[in-house]
Design a protein around this nucleic acid. Structure first.
Length: 812
RNA sequence: GCCGAGGUGGUGGAGUUGGUAGACACGCGAGACUUAAAAUCUCGUGACCUUACGGUCGCGCGGGUUCGAAUCCCGCCCUCGGCACCA
């Protein structure tokens, strides 16, 4: 018997498949369509480590299975190649980003091809290709025309090291830059912003449509959007026309307001008249200088300044209360101003304690608010005991000390009080609009021309793409302008509207732009005349299975946002782009840490393919743990998978004339289970079942015909070995990957006899073998016939519980 | 603090419409083959008690429901992830 030479066999079939073009997708096919999508990679200079292909292996297995099951499958691959990492790599290595990216893509493609993936490479896309980003720019113009893209001068996150503005999504939770770890500053500058907040409610509500998404991803998105519902209420400034609008989730506590606070950046801080201007200015400047990080770092120690001479009128009771500026109130959340209720908010309480402000309890949980109110002494005791114990409650309850509303429940009072003080029911979001411009070179140019008379003018669609020009220096300028600003001949152009002198927008789009719509490009990858062919779009969308990790909020929120805009404009036919999301767990290094050059624990798939084979790596990565688990790589485990494949090969050369009955039974069981498990992304148990079948077949014998069925259901996991057995050992003419998935025979799944577990008083004491579907008396007498079991039955059974073909419990 | 996911042998993990816990694999131990080693094959492998037959205990902890609980209910502990001075 010849040995299995994985290197030779894998290379042979990879070439054969390519020359036979067996993975081409046919748009005109009449078969039902399935769109299986990977999160396409950013082609880094470091190449792949063994963790990267895990998701690609899964989609490969899944799409092969769907194809064999009679579906026309779209399973494409491409490159997300714009963005800061590519640019920084290029600067460091003194190569033009385009050249570096080209080289990296070639390397990635080589690495992927060695794993035997079934991508239809004729649909390969690259976000940095002008024919691709033409349409990224086109989408921007649609957003602009719809009023969803606008210029803003608000302070934004500025990374001093990357020298560019960043969206909130690009920051770590401690306020540092996710790329370089620098502390991010607030810097006022002109930038393009997308009005994603207009879609906040839909992005939130439509999560309920996504019942095939993991709960933790939906939860992360809900947290990110961070909707809270409450009221907006206006307070008037005494002796002035100015009003302070606050957002509160607790209008029911308005009688407990003892002071008000403005964020340092609030416009009224400059407008109002107060006596201590210097002190206030100093505080405002100081708090602006403090980075976001410092602000968060302060462990609840509150700071602030009173605006001397200003008093604000509470619309609920006409009370005059003081006004503060304090940085615990955030300018970009709500209205940037709050009504402070120290008795029922921990932050307000901390501030009130520090500044010796009154605390007035207006919510009780005792349930006899009336009694407390009617006995002054008791009320005094209740308030003061509670006050000195410094226990505050943030829970809803019954109103007290609230005039006509005493005795009302919080929920009811929220509504009634809001109405009474002339407020409105309102929602506010943690989500901010998407800062969309970057002051860097390697991104899509924003297709806008600035004209002195016409303002910001969109580049006409027939002039797209606005191509990224070559520059001498693509390093950041440090002035807050993109390197593109230095290329005079590119910047200077004529205004598309009036024809006079105009200047091109020199900011570029963020990394996330190209990936926010790429799935659509795969459907119609070479269309230069239209965004997408509507008929093809309807055929393939939505994506049936989307597989990837990491991008739980950013990419998935941005893509959903753009998709909804395109839906509103009629370019796509579905509300949501991805119906089913499978989130993959990462592969850690053998030492349990992340694979990283820094730790020297990176395993290169090229090495594994060479020494153990692509099939062994594929099987191992699918078998190592449930798909969504993060698990450490184990070379021993890999060798185990390799051994399994070698035993498959051995048995393929040693088939018998007939299969043993146990083999037939197990074969049909396996066909059923493997199909179901692949559909459910439970690859580890699918492979376990294939191993069980191999063990049974080795022991009881398997015929050539039955072995071919086994080979077919193994094929999605180990395409090379399966093809070798299919075409060489069994001399088939066409590829195993074009064959139909075997059907299992329901009648072959039923055994003649079954083993029934025997419990006496709920304790397992043994088992009996009886005919399938035997009735209860038969099983009982079988148990009685067995000395070892019957000796436990003392006296008459009180009760017998019998579960057909499974278990009998005799209670005595 | 709020929210989400999870906790099963030495390890990765099976098993969750309540019904034989530990499938499959790794590791480990013993044996076969070999001059020897590797590879391969066979057997064993949750813990404890027992010469054996067999028994007792076991799915993070403590209760409960049930003939029967890893699975359901109540109360805790821990790990991972998201958000967090968000009004």
């Amino acid at each position: 018997m010849k040995n299995f030479d994985h290197t030779k066999v894998e290379k042979k079939w990879q070439q054969q498949w390519e020359s036979e073009d067996i993975y081409a997708t046919d748009d005109s096919s009449k078969k039902p369509k399935v769109f299986v999508l990977d999160m396409f990679p950013y082609p880094s200079g470091e190449g792949l480590h063994v963790g990267h292909p895990k998701g690609y292996i899964a989609t490969d297995v899944y799409s092969r299975f769907k194809k064999m099951s009679g579906f026309e499958v779209l399973h494409p691959m491409g490159w997300d190649a714009f963005g800061l990492p590519a640019e920084n790599f290029a600067i460091k290595n003194r190569v033009h980003p385009r050249v570096a990216v080209e080289k990296n893509i070639q390397n990635f493609k080589r690495q992927l091809s060695h794993l035997g993936f079934n991508y239809d490479w004729s649909r390969e896309i690259n976000t940095t290709d002008p024919e691709y980003y033409k349409w990224t720019q086109w989408i921007f113009l649609q957003l602009f025309k719809k009023g969803l893209a606008f210029e803003s001068h608000e302070p934004i996150n500025w990374c001093p090291s990357c020298q560019t503005g960043l969206a909130n999504e690009d920051l770590e939770s401690d306020g540092t830059c996710e790329r370089c770890g620098s502390i991010v500053e607030k810097k006022p500058m002109r930038q393009w912003v997308l009005r994603i907040t207009d879609y906040a409610d839909r992005l939130l509500d439509d999560l309920s449509l996504l019942d095939r998404w993991p709960e933790h991803i939906k939860e992360a998105q809900r947290n990110w959007i961070g909707k809270s519902e409450g009221s907006e209420i206006e307070f008037t400034v005494k002796g002035s026309q100015e009003r302070i609008k606050v957002f509160t989730t607790r209008p029911d506590t308005i009688f407990g307001v003892t002071y008000m606070v403005l964020a340092p950046e609030h416009e009224l801080v400059k407008k109002l008249a107060y006596s201590n201007t210097e002190e206030v200015e100093e505080y405002v400047v100081k708090s602006q200088r403090r980075s976001e990080m410092d602000r968060l770092d302060e462990t609840k120690e509150k700071t602030g300044v009173l605006l001397r001479g200003v008093s604000v009128v509470n619309p609920a009771n006409g009370e005059e209360i003081p006004l503060f500026v304090a940085d615990y109130v955030l300018a970009h959340y709500g209205t940037g101003a709050i009504m402070a209720v120290p008795a029922h908010d921990e932050r307000d309480y901390a501030f009130a304690r520090k500044f010796a402000l009154p605390v007035r309890k207006v919510i009780t949980h005792s349930g006899n608010a009336r009694g407390v109110d009617s006995i002054p002494l008791l009320r005094w005791l209740a308030n003061n005991l509670w006050y000195t114990r410094t226990v505050i409650t943030t829970n809803p309850g019954t109103l007290i000390n609230s005039g006509e509303f005493n005795g009302m429940e919080s929920e009811k009072a929220k509504e009634v009080i809001t109405e009474k003080v002339g407020g409105t029911i309102a929602s506010t979001y943690r989500l901010n609009d998407w800062v969309f411009s970057r002051q860097r070179y390697w991104g899509e140019p924003i297709p806008i021309v600035h004209c002195k008379t016409c303002g910001a003018v969109p580049v006409p669609e027939d002039q797209l793409p606005v191509t990224l020009p070559d520059v001498e220096n693509y390093e950041p300028t440090g002035t807050g302008e993109s390197p593109l600003a230095h290329i005079d001949e590119w910047v200077h152009t004529s205004c598309p509207t009036c024809g006079k002198e105009g200047k091109r927008e020199t900011n570029t789009m963020p990394q996330w732009a190209g990936s926010s719509w790429y799935y659509l490009r795969f459907i119609d990858p070479n269309n230069n005349d239209a965004f997408i062919d509507p008929e093809k779009e309807r055929q393939w969308m939505p994506v049936n299975v989307y597989v990837g990790g990491d991008h739980a909020v950013r990419h998935l929120i941005y893509a959903r946002f753009w998709h909804k805009v395109l839906f509103d404009l009629g370019y796509v036919s579905t509300e949501e782009p991805f119906t089913r999301l499978e989130f993959l767990g990462f592969i850690l290094a053998e030492d349990g840490r992340k694979m990283s050059k820094r730790w020297g624990n990176v395993i290169n798939p090229d090495e594994i393919v060479k020494t153990n084979g692509a099939d062994a790596m594929r099987v191992y990565e699918m078998f190592m743990s449930p798909f969504e688990n993060t698990t450490a790589w184990s070379t021993d485990g890999l060798v185990g998978s390799q051994r399994f494949l070698e035993r498959v090969w051995k048995l393929s050369q040693n088939t018998t004339t007939e299969s043993g009955p146990a083999t037939v039974l197990e074969l049909h069981k396996t066909i059923k289970k493997v199909g179901e498990d692949i559909e459910g992304f439970k690859f580890n148990t699918a492979i376990a079942q294939l191993m069980i079948l191999l063990n049974v077949a080795t022991e009881h014998g398997i015929s050539g015909e039955d072995f071919k069925l086994f080979t077919q259901i193994l094929a999605p996991f180990a395409p090379h070995l399966s093809e070798e057995i299919w075409r060489e050992t069994f001399a088939e003419n066409t590829s195993i990957h074009l064959t139909a998935w075997p059907e299992y025979n329901e009648s072959q799944l039923v055994k003649e006899t079954v083993t029934i577990a025997v419990q006496i008083n709920g304790k397992k004491r043994g088992s009996v073998e009886v005919a399938t579907n035997a009735d209860e008396p038969t099983v009982v007498s079988a148990v009685r016939a067995e000395e070892k079991l019957s000796r436990w039955i003392v006296g008459e059974p009180k009760r017998v519980v019998y579960i057909l073909n499974k278990l009998i419990n005799i209670v005595v």
